[in-house]
Design a protein around this nucleic acid. Structure first.
Lengths: 346, 346
DNA sequence: CCGAACGATGGGAGCGCTCCCATTCGCATT
DNA sequence: AATGCGAATGGGAGCGCTCCCATCGTTCGG
């Protein structure tokens, strides 16, 4: 195969000449070949093959106004982002789905408030056809940015705001946080536990709130001394566990709003010589393989299909873009199911 | 601020008209304003502001042949990729550096051998100015692809092959794996340990081999019964530890080639009631915050600045692209230093 | 056997930008 | 005030592609 000399890539013109057809016909063949007679299609295909023709993306974008790329915006001020595999897994699902539709993934990582300017400029610049975003706090400027830029966006996780009147409904993909939490607490109750504590996530994240709601769904009159707030990190889980033990040394079960906090809590219990699950049963949330299986004892937890959620986000966005073109309605948001995975901690 | 009606974005032409100058002059101002007199510069700037002008990227790319984007290729057959924060951190460093140079990050995740075709097509398509890649195995097809596509590439981690005669030297950024390993083993020896075992990584990764070399540098006549092979995962670390204990119940220290394996090994030691660090001291490698601080006891380990390595990779690539344009030589590869972080496990 | 109707093909404009080159301008010099 | 020169500016071509529309060739019904 010949080395590509920079700047010498063959053009459609060259392909057309070689195949003995017009540029227009060559273009038709390259784009699917509808309405071109078989022998010509073959000739053009052969020419493409021989010349190693690859369409110039910039030229195509210039006229079609479609970029074939989607931005993935990861905006999260905390360092947490990347020490927890959550985003990575979702990203992977997204990547798979986009690749299957020949769409590129442009990654935008927001490192600080000043970065939003950069992101806004980029999204407004028409570099991408749509965007995928995560983990929004109530006052996140991103939704305003994408709306103003006119970039269709699908969110990962239920946003904390709802669309204003007349605005297109916000599209998102989320796990059934509330249902999963309910299942976890119900399971602990089924085990005969009576003083079930809850280690929650930051109240400005809807996933944390939804899980708390699920907890309350089962424990109708929730005892506030059994509820502690964490920040979805190992450390914060440990701290919350210490607090809880101080307030309620009699607790016999803990439901933590994610695996990382559960692992921190387990560490504290171990340090104090409290047997898990004999004295205190523990259930987490997420089922991150690198965490849930590695704890001591291995963690019973609520599994959500993170990669699947990523894939779904991409699918939703792509389908929406398609429908925009055909004039149909954008598809609805999706809630994916969760399942309880039994291991040794409860 | 006016909502952007799709397809109605102002063009340079409009800016020029509004400022009362030619398109050429407007273009000059937008691209830095060299050689344009101050009053005109101001007029154009104002017009840009008023019209909310954002240059059309596709049109610019079409003529300049520069995309302002860089591909990050993550090719790793194992599932491991995303359950270990290594890539994520490096990605973050890359992202920061690229953002600082207004360069976009296109993420290409290779999911299987069939994917290489897709990647090859993409890279050959002139969608990006350069590429960053990781974690190459000896028979990885990627180097051949990037070379054929004429895409300048910087690797993360020392590649296992070297450039052929007449070829441009391979550029990479790597931590001082060998030096770090040396420091770890030396430290264990300083602690008075005499039977220091080694849990290594897969032999087809240069980082694993370099660390083994460092181990051997200190323990000149290495006892093969003290060396076990893992796969950089928690599970494999646990397995290797079991093996070692069976072969050498008398070992008094372990150096694991990464933190994940060290954490698996610690688990096994704990299960067997072997005190760490009293009976067996443990040192890891990487200093991943989500792992090294969370183990029991917290892990003494060799720190490498992963994010910094990512940043360096991007810088190296961008500088190389720049030099290609000016005709200068591409910069050399870089080895970044490692440091030993003392915690409780040794 | 001829004309209408339809499907296949080609010509050409134009997407928004950069950059070459010709032109014009400002200014210093004589 | 005329001349020259370099710097500033504008005109225009062209990057590679798609898509509109005119043209051409076919096929079918009458």
């Amino acid at each position: 195969m010949p080395e590509q000399h920079p700047g010498s890539r063959p053009t459609l013109e060259a392909v057309a000449a070689r195949a003995g057809v017009s540029r227009a016909t060559a273009s038709r063949v390259v784009n699917g070949g509808d309405g071109v007679r078989k022998p010509l299609v073959d000739k053009v295909r052969r020419a493409v093959e021989e010349l190693q023709y690859i369409p110039n993306h910039a030229a195509r974008t210039l006229v079609t106004r479609r970029t074939g790329a989607v931005a993935v915006v990861i905006a999260e001020p905390e360092i947490r982002i990347f020490s927890d595999p959550f985003f990575s897994q979702q990203l992977r699902g997204i990547s798979k789905e986009l690749a299957a539709h020949d769409t590129q993934l442009v990654l935008l990582i927001v490192e600080g408030p000043a970065d939003f300017d950069r992101i806004a400029r980029y999204l407004s610049g028409g570099h991408v056809d749509g965007a995928l975003a995560f983990s929004l706090h109530t006052d996140d400027p991103l939704p305003a940015i994408t709306r103003r830029a006119g970039v269709p966006t699908v969110y990962g996780g239920r946003p904390s705001w709802t669309a204003g009147p007349g605005e297109q409904a916000v599209q998102y993909v989320d796990a059934d946080n509330r249902g999963g939490a309910r299942a976890a607490v119900q399971y602990l109750r089924g085990l005969g536990r009576e003083r079930i504590a809850y280690i929650g996530g930051p109240p400005d994240q809807t996933s944390a709130m939804d899980r708390l709601d699920g907890y309350r769904d089962i424990l109708l009159e929730t005892d506030p001394t059994l509820v502690a707030e964490g920040a979805f990190t190992v450390e914060s889980g440990a701290r919350a566990m210490s607090e809880l033990l101080e307030r309620r040394p009699d607790l016999d079960a803990v439901f933590a709003a994610n695996d990382l906090m559960a692992s921190g809590a387990l560490r504290v219990l171990r340090e104090r010589g409290i047997a898990v699950p004999e004295q205190v049963a523990m259930v987490g949330f997420d089922d991150m393989d690198s965490v849930a299986e590695a704890t001591d004892p291995p963690l019973t937890t609520v599994r959500q299909d993170i990669e699947g959620m990523g894939r779904l986000m991409a699918r939703l966005l792509l389908r929406g873009l398609d429908r925009d073109r055909t004039g149909a309605d954008r598809p609805d948001s999706v809630i994916t199911p969760t399942t309880l995975v039994r291991r040794a901690s409860a």
